[in-house]
Design a protein around this nucleic acid. Structure first.
Length: 165
DNA sequence: GCCAACGTTGGC
DNA sequence: GCCAACGTTGGC
């Protein structure tokens, strides 16, 4: 085998309500990059703070909308750093318990990576045997950021290559 | 708008 | 540390 760095890529899934921030919105940002602000759940924060690496790939999932499902692929584009919205009293994500010295909420920048040929709807995710253990398909799951296995990621990209039907 | 399910808060 | 109450999420 040729010498190379052993560098594993991890896979993730990020939920967003497309009315608030969609995959198309991300793509339209300068450089296709956006700080993923507003996460106010400790488990989701910990994934960003402790487990993500620059270059990891993430599925962009549209939730709470007429056609929930995976809309595209993005890439983790920064190390974790404090979410600036926690410090701004005027911001809807302001947290009075957070200080610049002791921030509570952490984010990463994400960047548009690639479009998928077809949106992969929730019904198709649920119908795919390779995804039966997928985190977001488990009953009651509400986490906005979840890990995805390489096999799950591949299965979803494969589904995206064909239209629903 | 409904409701199941879950995370967080706060009284004790 | 328990647990009831509350707020939020997200599919339908």
């Amino acid at each position: 085998m040729a010498a190379r760095f052993f560098c594993t890529v991890n896979y993730w899934l990020f939920k967003s309500e497309p009315d608030v921030f969609s995959f198309a919105d991300l793509k339209a940002r300068p450089g296709g990059t956006e700080p993923w602000s507003g996460v106010r759940n400790f488990q989701a924060r910990n994934y960003m703070r402790d487990n993500m690496k620059v270059g990891d790939l993430a599925l962009f999932y549209h939730s709470s909308c007429p056609d929930p499902g995976v809309a595209g692929v993005m890439r983790i584009a920064s190390e974790p750093y404090p979410d600036p919205t926690q410090f701004k009293p005027s911001d809807e994500y302001f947290d009075p318990k957070a200080t610049e010295e002791k921030p509570i909420w952490i984010l990463v920048d994400v960047a548009w990576e690639k479009d998928l040929k077809h949106h992969v709807g929730l019904d198709r995710l649920r119908g795919e045997p390779a995804l039966e253990d997928m985190f977001i398909l488990r009953k009651g799951n509400r986490l906005s950021i979840t890990p995805v296995t390489a096999a799950e990621y591949k299965a979803i990209v494969k589904l995206s290559q064909t239209a629903a039907g």
